[in-house]
Amino acid sequence: MSGYNFAYLDEQTKRMIRRALLKAVAIPGYQVPFASREMPMPYGWGTGGVQVTAACLVPEDTLKVIDQGADDTTNAVSIRAFFARVADIATTEHTRDASVIQTRHRIPEAPLREDQILVFQVPIPEPLRFLEPRETETRKMHALEEYGLMHVRLYEDIARHGEIAKSYAYPVRVEGRYVMDPSPIPKFDNPKLDDCPALQLFGAGREQRIYALPPYTRVESLDFEDYPFKASRPDHPCALCGARDSYLDEVVIDDAGGRMFVCSDTDYCNDRRAAGHRGEMAAPFEEMPE
């Protein structure tokens, strides 16, 4: 790791991010502005999450990085290799072995523990942005707790489609106060945000915002009494491990309309197959990775 300060960022930057993180934890769901830095990767590749992770890491950490649930995609592999190099920390693909998990657009299926920190990469942190483009106005709306526009939007969905059509980045209310964008996780994951034993941190690099959910915080998905929130998933078992409780990716497998549904959480799927679970398209024999 010679040539780099621990975890890449300089100390002045880490102090600035750390102060923002403490205020974010003290005001759950409120977006704290921070002076996001250029990182050695493009915006949209997780620069916010990377800066939050860098400010939190200690040498004893074991880091897991997932992209849409997978440990083996370019984004996840690159960020893991980045921190292995600049912070000299251990990495893992197993949720249970990780002390810090950086994630793009999923929450792992395995329940998180008190000794873990989940860091979300966030593209657009402002849940009201597509309803009101002006930052001065959305800031006022949060200050005045004026969230009527969001409910109108959800109501219009029901009027038009018969249900709330938002399937990801589904807005939540934190401790009955701030409306928050949970990042583009599928709404299937929303219930995992609530009363979670792990600390959850959110970093938006391009938009320069940090926010947080302390452990055991009340997080409710917005809904109506007669149209209650429902966490949905495709109505299939995983084709590889047979799981009926996990979030699934739909994969097109030929040019004749063939498709399969597989767990988006690769570690969860591997664990289940290693334990002998078989889906209908599982290989008759496979050697499982360690």
Binding site: K14, R15, L21, V25, A26, C56, P59, L199, A212
Partner: peptide, 19 residues
């Protein structure tokens, strides 16, 4: 060792504020 020592301190402060 400022980089390492302050990282360890911050982690404890962060967890203290979170809990």
């Amino acid at each position: 060792n400022p980089a390492i020592d302050s990282a360890r301190v911050f982690r404890e402060v962060l967890q203290a504020m979170a809990r």
